[in-house]
Design a binder for these strands. Structure first.
Length: 279
DNA sequence: AACTGACCCAACCGCAGCCCC
DNA sequence: CGGGGCTGCGGTTGGGTCAGT
């Protein structure tokens, strides 16, 4: 029944790694590189499951692992990223050079989680409500409910023709380039509505454009959507961000389970962490 | 000194997504 | 297109350590 185990457990070492095993694994990876974890133990002569080797390397043996206590800055960043991303430890770890997802997860579970819990119970009489299920991200709620964002990038599925912003004069301009400020509102006259952003997937030369409605959290979520990948996936020429001030034209267009969130660069989005919009 | 409970963290487990055949 | 294998991720566990009694 069920899945076969990743490797035979018979004759395998388990539990804590010995110094000798560490040495063997390290020198093997130095010569052959990472990957092919399944075959690695056999090739390296280790009586360990491939998964175990991978974990040991990633969480402990890698040369770029930072040892020592989590600094105050790191701690602050973890808290903020956790607010933003939830328990996406690998993503959080990606923003903390030298720290592993396991380390951050442990740190959260043992230290920060408790602290946060304590603070929240001090600040509010009712216990914290669980995060909403992923699909509760509908526009009707999203404007008011800013919670942990979905980190799986999502794709617009409904298309509408929009004439909100005129096509740029230069059709060859690359709107995915950093020279375009994604946060700069296109019309600065209506400050009341600048908390929302539009994502266009589309070609200015084409008839079809797609839009998504973003509150800041959703905006960041959308930013996880790697431009190059999105271009490939969607077949559209350009993906750009614009400010938007006409809610009536916004159309709910989120779906789930599409696109990838790799190549994430949260660094360019750190301004959001300081935004008053975050809960 | 011995015991006990709390805490920490490395390691394990199961699941899901991706990729290849 | 479907199935199987591989990899990565997040939740959980268990053993070691430390502080309190």
């Amino acid at each position: 029944m069920g899945r076969s185990p990743c490797c035979s457990k018979e004759g395998m070492n388990r539990g804590a790694w010995t110094a000798m095993e560490d040495k063997i694994l390290t020198s093997y990876i130095k010569v052959h590189g990472e990957g092919k974890w399944r075959n690695l133990p056999k090739r390296a002569g280790l009586k360990r499951c491939g998964k175990s080797c991978r974990l040991r390397w990633l969480n402990y043996l890698r040369p770029d692992i930072k040892r020592g206590n989590i600094t105050r800055d790191e701690e602050e960043l973890i808290v903020r990223l956790h607010k933003l991303l939830g328990n996406r430890w690998s993503l959080i770890a990606g923003r903390l050079p030298g720290r592993t997802d396991n380390e951050i997860k442990n740190y959260w579970n043992t230290t920060l989680g408790k602290r946060t819990k304590t603070h929240s119970s001090e600040n509010s009489p009712s216990p914290p409500s669980p995060p909403p299920p992923p699909n509760e991200h509908n526009s009707s709620n999203s404007v008011t409910k800013t919670q942990v964002i979905r980190t799986k990038a999502t794709k617009c599925t409904k298309a509408l023709i929009s004439l909100i912003h005129p096509p740029p004069a230069d059709h060859d301009q690359d709107y995915s380039s950093p020279s375009i400020d994604p946060l700069k509102p296109q019309d600065d006259h209506d400050d009341d509505h600048h908390q929302n952003f539009l994502l266009y997937h589309g070609s200015y030369e084409g008839q079809q454009q797609e839009m998504c409605n973003y509150e800041p959290a959703n905006f960041l979520n959308a930013a996880l959507f790697n431009n190059e990948d999105a271009k490939l996936d969607s077949g559209f020429d350009n993906i750009m961000w614009v400010g938007h001030q006409d809610h009536s034209l916004l159309q709910e267009c989120w779906t789930t389970d599409s696109c990838a969130d790799h190549s994430l660069d949260l660094g360019s989005l750190t301004f959001l962490l300081d935004s008053e919009e975050w809960p």
